[in-house]
Design a protein around this nucleic acid. Structure first.
Lengths: 227, 227
DNA sequence: CGACTGGTTGACGAGGGTCAAGGACCGTGG
DNA sequence: CCACGGTCCTTGACCCTCGTCAACCAGTCG
């Protein structure tokens, strides 16, 4: 299997490409009985860049993808982490307004945008895309509330609960991303994220097993704090 | 004309309803050759509430609408202001996840959600809705960057430039909403918003004509500051 | 005229950012 | 096997931006 090695400066866009069919079944996401291209990206590799033309839409097969925007001076905001099964890369026009990068080793399937949009105008497909986009929109609005009005502890708590819910691994959250990415997602600094983890640990709400594995000990109380 | 008077606690949901056809032409928004119901709301009246079932989708005819979410303790985040021509009220499922209120006296046209979604499955309409939603999503992600990474002065500057662009009234921005709403949109307090206006005035970038009218004197520099 | 809503300005403090040092972990190679 | 380098994480000290609290001002309506 062709894959890429990690890269300090994640700028090149040369995914190794393998052709494949999109497997049906074992897959909760919308009905895409369409040909896709399987692609693989190493940690920190760029899947597409802000401003690039948006020829494809992607579905995560394995790994984690981050969607981010930059200010001219380098400040970064991550708008979403996408997990296996999630789709990303839709845009209103033909340009990507954000960039997508692999947080871990990632496999995706890329679908031609034209096929999805024009493709026969299958009503089902169109509705699925609309629904998907609306769900994404709701998540983003929820995140606005977090960034605009929650304090650091609430942000981290909300993040942990959200990751727990999305991965359904029963109170044990495996964080695929480093503190820096969490910080840029939550509108904080990595130091503050670290301190909030420590705070939750001290309060006995959480147990840390290394930096990347978090046991949620009291979801009830975490939930009541998360907002 | 039936309208409602302002209300200190904007909770009641009793819009005065008038039947009307949706006028074609003089209207850039998507092709909705569909019957709608014209409704009128007084300042601070609720158009729909968080958690309410989402039977309709709305288009602003006149006035300004705010979309907001609340935390249990009352902290509020406004995710968008909608101006004439804008649509709002789409949801992924059948419940409104945010509430919509009239910032000023407002006229809207309400369309039955079922008609828009199921309605013949007209490919054009479906695509329009998807496009609209994607544009909304992009705006929301842009706002994430603002809330997560911009400082107070940058936020206010970005807000003014955005309002200027949307109203196309040549460097004079008419703010329909009070400082408190601007603050809840920008993730600040009303005092900080007021101070940032003062700061922009001191720097000679802006001229204030009363609290609600702002002349943008140096858009170039404002843009470079808006980050 | 007085009451109300909305806006401005000032003094002060706290939450989180910045800067800096050091620790933990991991793969590589001697 | 251990030393080494790199990446990631934690913790502390300090400081700054913005929130809080409060007083006062301006415009509007009855």
């Amino acid at each position: 299997m062709l894959t890429q090695t990690a890269h300090a400066t994640p700028l090149a866009h040369q995914p190794d490409i393998a052709l494949s069919l999109h497997r049906k079944g074992r897959d909760e996401s919308p009905s895409l009985g369409v040909l896709g291209i399987a692609m693989s990206f190493g940690r920190n590799m760029e899947i597409y860049a802000e401003g690039e033309s948006a020829g494809h839409v992607y579905k995560v097969v394995s790994g984690v993808v981050r969607i981010s925007n930059l200010l001219p001076d380098g400040r970064r905001q991550i708008s979403a982490f996408h997990l296996p099964g999630d789709m990303f890369g839709f845009e209103a026009d033909n340009l990507h307004w954000a960039s997508a990068e692999a947080v871990t080793q990632v496999k995706v399937i890329a679908y031609k945008r034209r096929i999805l949009l024009a493709g026969g105008g299958s009503t089902n497909l169109g509705r699925d895309l609309l629904h998907l986009t609306l769900v994404e929109l709701r998540h983003t609005q929820e995140h606005l509330l977090l960034l605009g009005r929650k304090n650091a502890l609430e942000r981290v708590t909300t993040f942990l609960l959200d990751m727990d819910k999305r991965t359904k691994a029963g109170s044990v959250v495996e964080l695929a991303m480093p503190r820096h990415d969490i910080a840029d997602y939550l509108g904080l600094t990595l130091e503050t994220v670290s301190r909030m983890f420590a705070e939750l640990k001290e309060r006995g709400l959480v147990r840390l097993e290394g930096a990347r594995r978090v046991h949620l000990l009291d979801k009830q109380q975490l939930t009541s704090m998360g907002a």
